[in-house]
């Protein structure tokens, strides 16, 4: 499907609003999160590597907790982008599988998708990638509240 100029500007508007939304979250701002893409029930958010986020000083690998924070934020954004337009959302549970260490000094990108929505619960899947976009660093599944 091709996107006309008005679709593009809609998308830019939504992205700008989402970026403002992210910047209003102190912890997302503290981690330097950036909205890269949005779609219906989908979000892509990334953040830079940084010295103070290191979990293993021997290798410079970022702490798993940072990846959790990024995936949690990205899943929340995907819920808010769902066509059912929930007013707000909160995490009920989130499971993260750590497949490999993220490469030091590389940007981390999370992609989340809301694959099912009931009247009050959203079901999410997400992956986290470093600059090797083929082999995910981590995968997550979660359930979020959806306030209508």
């Amino acid at each position: 499907m091709s996107a006309g100029p008005s679709d593009d500007s809609d998308r830019d508007d939504r992205k700008r609003i989402a970026q403002q939304f992210i910047e209003a979250i102190p912890h997302a701002r503290a981690l330097g999160m950036r909205v890269d893409d949005l779609g219906p029930g989908r979000a892509v958010i990334s953040m830079p590597w940084s010295d103070h986020l290191v979990g293993d000083p021997r290798t410079g690998v970022i702490h798993g907790g940072v990846v959790s924070a990024l995936m949690d934020t990205c899943c929340g954004a995907a819920v808010m982008m769902h066509p059912a337009s929930p007013r707000s959302t909160a995490t009920i549970d989130l499971r993260i599988d750590y497949m490999r260490a993220a490469a030091p000094r590389q940007r981390i990108t999370a992609r989340a998708e809301c694959y099912h929505m009931t009247r009050s619960v959203a079901f999410l899947r997400a992956v986290a990638l470093d600059e090797d976009g083929e082999n995910p660093v981590a995968a997550a599944t979660g359930a979020f509240t959806a306030e209508r």
Binding site: P26, A28, H63, A69
Partner: peptide
């Protein structure tokens, strides 16, 4: 550490970390 400035509430990612 705030994730929801309206309530306010801790960020879920902070709790997880």
């Amino acid at each position: 550490l705030i994730g929801n400035p309206v309530l306010p509430a801790l960020h879920g990612g902070v709790t997880a970390a």
